[in-house]
């Protein structure tokens, strides 16, 4: 197809996207998006819907992706916005079901699998204690290893501010780990 009338030389018809491209894009990024939403505190029952929303928004806004950030950062930003919208509607959850663990890795015996599942539940219990933005900062900095520039972009913050936010997020996380461990030990006694 020709360029639409009025298109300047800055515009050029490049390609016809194929559904294979979308399909591969989805396959490549779905786990990351889904995992990020969970780590950002989206409730278990809402995860699939939220992931669907992120992909629909990404499709709709793909023209806005400018390559300033990495694709993952961009998707993470969309996920963060969606997670925040969902948080606005619901209050903090205390009696939410714990995260569903994946089927245990092959080769693990029952005991190891149980330990693995418990480690997963524990980390989410700890994350649930953090305020949403602190939690997001911790996940970006410590799990996704994003740079300060990338974190700044997701949160629309000045880069300088990010450093102090990361510090605070780490402090909160440390404290929450200690509290949760103490609680668990108290329960075992």
């Amino acid at each position: 197809m020709a360029a639409p009338p009025g298109a300047s030389t800055r515009l050029a018809v490049t390609e016809v996207a194929r559904v294979d491209d979308w399909s591969a894009f989805y396959d490549e990024h779905f786990d990351f998006v889904w995992r990020s939403l969970r780590r950002l505190g989206v409730a278990e029952a809402a995860l699939d819907d939220a992931a669907q929303d992120v992909f629909v928004v990404a499709l709709r806004r793909q023209g806005e992706f400018e390559g300033r950030s990495s694709l993952r950062t961009w998707l993470f930003g969309i996920a963060w916005n969606r997670a925040r919208e969902l948080q606005r509607g619901t209050r903090r959850r205390a009696e939410e079901p714990l995260p569903e663990a994946l089927p245990p890795a092959a080769g693990l015996d029952q005991e190891q699998a149980a330990i693995q599942a418990e480690a997963l539940r524990f980390v989410y219990r700890v994350l649930d204690e953090l305020a949403p933005e602190r939690r997001a900062v911790l996940v970006m900095a410590e799990v996704e290893e994003m740079t300060a520039v990338e974190i700044a972009e997701v949160l629309s913050l000045p880069v300088n501010t990010v450093y102090s936010r990361v510090r605070l997020a780490r402090r909160d996380f440390e404290a929450a780990v200690k509290r949760s461990r103490a609680r668990e030990q108290g329960r075992r006694r």
């Binding site: 399909s23 989805y26 396959d27 779905f30 786990d31 889904w34 995992r35 969970r38 780590r39 995860l47 699939d48 992931a51 669907q52 992909f55 629909v56 995260p99 663990a101 994946l102 089927p103 245990p104 890795a105 693995q116 480690a119 997963l120 524990f122 980390v123 989410y124 700890v126 410590e142 799990v143 780490r170 996380f173 440390e174 780990v177 200690k178 461990r181």
Partner: peptide, 27 residues
Amino acid sequence: QARDTLERGLAFDGPSAERRARVKARI
């Protein structure tokens, strides 16, 4: 301690293949 919590807890975190396929079909 905090790093262990993250590393061990998130080592096998992710959606099942069934969920991945289902959400795709819904989109």
